[in-house]
Design a protein around this nucleic acid. Structure first.
Lengths: 230, 230
DNA sequence: CCAAAAGTGTTTCCGATACACCCATGA
DNA sequence: TCATGGGTGTATCGGAAACACTTTTGG
C-alpha cells in the first residue's frame, strides 16, 4: 500500500543507545542489522516511527523487538539528528534516545539469533554505520553530565547492591577514580539509599551490606528541588 | 505535485522559542498564524522541514521568514515533541529550537504586517495553541538551567553593555535577585569581559563602564573545560 | 546639594578534598 | 594466619554568601 502527501517529507526514525554495566565497565548494546543498508553490520538498535505511537513508544517497541528489553527500562530523549545524508537511502531524521539497564538482568550476549543483540565495551566495538558514532558520542557526554546531578546510577545496578558496586559504576561512567570515604559520605548524606539489612553472599572476605534505592524518597526530594550533584 | 511512500510517515516540523530581553524583563517572540489550523491565533514561529535542509537550517529559515531575524542568532536544539494529537490536522512531529537575541536589535513590535511578529512578556501573553505552552515551559527551564553553566547571557545583550545590564539579565532569567558585589566578582574573574574604555551616555548620574564579551577567550576557555557556573 | 546609580572588600560558613588504618570473613 | 575487600573520621582548603558605605555625575 502506498501513501501520498502533497509535499515530500523526510522519514522519521528512532535510534537507541543502551548503556549497561558489569565487572568490565560500561557497555553499550548493539544489534546486527538484518536489512539494507549496512545489512550485517553492527549498529544501534532503531527503526521507523509509526503513526499510532509516540516517539518514546517507538523507541521502546524497537528495543523490545530487537533486543528483548522490557518496557520499564529508564529511557530518555537525547537529541534529534537530521543531517541530509546520514542515511544513504533517502532523507531520514532520527530521534535518538538513551537507556540505562541493569546488565546483570540482560545477559543478551550470545543471544538467540532472533535478536542478534550483544553488549560491547565502549573501547572495543566495531565502527558503526550511519552517524551512529556521533550519536554514541553525544550519548556518552550526556550520561557523564547527567550522572553529576541526577542519581541515574541506580538504573544501572541490580535491585540490591553494595556501595562498592555503586562506586565503581560512578568510576566507570566518569572514567576517573573516586575517593571511597568521600563517596560514601556524600551518597549516604543524600538519604536515597535504604539498608536492606542483608549482606553480600558467597565472597571469601567480609561481606558488604546490601542497599536498595529509595525511589519514593528520590521523587520527593527531586520535587523539592534538591541537588544531587556528585 | 504529490509524493508517495510505501509506509505512512508523520510530517516533520520545527518550532522556535525566541527569547529576548529589554527593560521589562524576559520576552518571547510570537507570530500571528496566517494559515489554518488556529489561523489568526498567536503561536510560536515554525513550519515544515524541507528535504534539502537540515533541522537547524529549517529553524533559521522559518525565523527569517516569519520574524525577519537574521541568520546569526544563537540557536540550539531543545527537544522533539511527538505526541499523537499535538496537531489537529494529522500526525506532526516537531523539533523545537530555542534562540536568544538582543532585543534592542530587533524591535519588531508593531512590525510590518508582513511579519506580524511581536514580543510578549512571559507573564503577559495569550494562551498558545498546539502544545506550544509545553514547548515554552521546557524552553524556559532549559534556559534557566543553561545560564548557570554557560554564559549564554551575552547573546541577549547589545554588543556593549554595563555590568548592571548583565546582572539584570541574570536576574530576569533566574527570576531572583543577585548580589551585586558577588556577581561582579564572579563574572569578572571569568575573564570573559573586556573593558571597552567607554562609558554609558546620556544618563543623569555617574556613567557606567561599557564592556564587551570576549568571544575568542570564551571559545578557548570552553575547550579547556572551564566551568562557567554562575 | 541632592538624587541616582556605580563601584568596591572583608568575614563567615559550608561543602569538597585529601588522606591511612582497623575490621570481618573465608580459605 | 593471611589475603581480601569492607568500613570508618578528621583536618584543610577554597569558593559561596552575606553584608554597607563611598564615589561620581547631572540636574
Amino acid at each position: 500500500m502506498s501513501h501520498s502527501y502533497e509535499h515530500p517529507r523526510p522519514a522519521l526514525a528512532v535510534d537507541c543507545v543502551v548503556f549497561g554495566l558489569d565487572e568490565n565497565g560500561l557497555q553499550v548494546l548493539l544489534v546486527e542489522r538484518g536489512v539494507a543498508p549496512f545489512k550485517g553490520r553492527t549498529a544501534l538498535p532503531g527503526g521507523f516511527v509509526r503513526l499510532d505511537e509516540t516517539l518514546e513508544e517507538a523507541a521502546r517497541r524497537e528495543l523490545e523487538e530487537e533486543t528483548g528489553l522490557g518496557a520499564k527500562v529508564f529511557l530518555e530523549q537525547l537529541y534529534t539528528f537530521g543531517d541530509l545524508h546520514r542515511d544513504p537511502r533517502e532523507r531520514v531524521v532520527s530521534v535518538a534516545y538513551y537507556a540505562l539497564v541493569k546488565l546483570s538482568d540482560h545477559r543478551v550476549r550470545a543471544a538467540t539469533d532472533a535478536s542478534a543483540a550483544a553488549w560491547f565495551r565502549l573501547g572495543d566495538k566495531p565502527q558503526l554505520p550511519f552517524d551512529h558514532e556521533q550519536i554514541l558520542r553525544v550519548a556518552k557526554a550526556r550520561l557523564q553530565a547527567k550522572v553529576r546531578y541526577q542519581p541515574l546510577g541506580f538504573e544501572l545496578l541490580p535491585p540490591r547492591f553494595t556501595l562498592a558496586q555503586l562506586q565503581s559504576l560512578y568510576e566507570a561512567v566518569l572514567e576517573k577514580p573516586v575517593d571511597k570515604r568521600n563517596f560514601r559520605k556524600k551518597i549516604l548524606s543524600m538519604e536515597l539509599l535504604e539498608e536492606t539489612g542483608e549482606r553480600e553472599e558467597g565472597v571469601s572476605h567480609r561481606a558488604a551490606r546490601l542497599y536498595r534505592f529509595d525511589r519514593k524518597r528520590y521523587v520527593a526530594l527531586e520535587k523539592a528541588g534538591v541537588n544531587f550533584e556528585l
